[in-house]
Computed example of a mutant assay.
Amino acid sequence: MRCIAAIAFTFLLATSCSSQSQGRLVSGEQLTEVREKLEYYLYYPPNYPEDGQTPGQDQRTFGLLVFLHGGGDAGNSLEQLKAQGPPKRLLEGPDLPFLVLAPQHGEARTWWNTRAVMELVREVVDKNHIDPSRIYLSGLSRGASACWELAVQNPDYFAAMAVVCGMAPAPYAHWLDPEMPIWMFHGTEDEVIPFSESLEMADKLEALGRNVRFTVYEGMGHNVWDKAYGDPELFEWLAAQRRD
């Protein structure tokens, strides 16, 4: 009888413990709101009209380049943006034939909020003489990584993309607009974001038959953006692109 009682007690204890540790799957819903302040520079070419009026459809004749900086220029000082990329190129001259929007990401250790960036872009496009078929996307390092994300999230928006030494998830290749031309730049000795990131993406895009150019800087490290954005051919190439 003692043996039977012991077995019964053990069974009841195990059953009790099992019922107490059982998990639950509960459904729920939460409406979230994320707000982000984006300070920015907006460049207007010399022949841009100064009427101050919201343009009609027949007045949208200028292209727009959206430029996203790297992690080193994140913060709260717009002056930092003048040291790299298209803003630096504009200060050194010559002028560019399209508008340039250069927002600043305020957080040094977080990724770009691409939804906030896209909201800013649409606002700038809506209020200026910008041709929706001539909106270009470019970025360096962390900004280049955000460009891939923006192009995936908005596959029918950008006319072309130029990315410099950024992380490039190869699976994104399947989600990009197959008609959007892409120009990639990367140094073979990059110790921050490996050269293999761009190489694998370029190979994937070529295998899919996409319009991709890949400029390889042999023996160069992470900072290849001065060379990339210092090449006038890049801006000529961008200005020649248009969505059908």
Rank of each mutant, 00 (worst) to 15 (best):
I7M: 14
A8P: 04
A8S: 14
T10Q: 05
L12E: 06
L13F: 11
A14T: 11
A14K: 08
A14W: 13
T15K: 11
S16R: 05
Q20V: 11
Q22Y: 05
V26Q: 04
E29F: 09
E33K: 11
V34S: 10
R35E: 14
Y40P: 01
Y41P: 00
Y41S: 04
Y41V: 04
L42I: 15
P45A: 09
P45K: 08
P46T: 13
E50G: 06
G52F: 14
T54F: 10
D58K: 11
R60P: 03
R60F: 06
T61H: 12
G63P: 02
G63L: 00
G63H: 03
V66T: 02
F67Y: 15
L68E: 00
G70T: 02
G71Q: 11
G72S: 11
A74G: 06
A74Q: 09
G75E: 03
G75Y: 04
L78Q: 03
Q80R: 15
K82S: 12
G85Y: 02
P87S: 08
R89M: 14
L90I: 15
L91P: 05
P94Q: 10
D95Q: 14
V100C: 03
L101D: 01
W112L: 07
N113S: 15
E119G: 10
E119P: 04
V124L: 07
N128Y: 07
H129W: 06
D131G: 09
P132C: 08
I135E: 01
Y136A: 02
L140V: 04
S141E: 04
S141Q: 07
A146D: 04
W148D: 01
A151G: 11
Q153N: 11
Q153C: 06
Q153E: 15
D156T: 14
Y157F: 15
A160P: 00
M161V: 15
A170V: 15
P171W: 12
A173Y: 04
H174C: 07
W175F: 14
L176M: 10
E179L: 08
M180H: 02
H186Q: 12
D190P: 03
E191H: 07
S196P: 07
E197N: 10
S198L: 05
L199M: 13
M201I: 12
D203C: 07
R210W: 09
R210N: 10
R210C: 03
R213C: 03
R213F: 09
F214D: 01
E218L: 11
E218Q: 14
G219V: 09
M220D: 06
H222Q: 07
K227Q: 13
K227N: 13
A228M: 05
Y229V: 03
D231L: 10
D231P: 08
P232V: 03
W237Q: 10
W237I: 09
L238E: 01
L238D: 00
A239Y: 02
D244V: 05
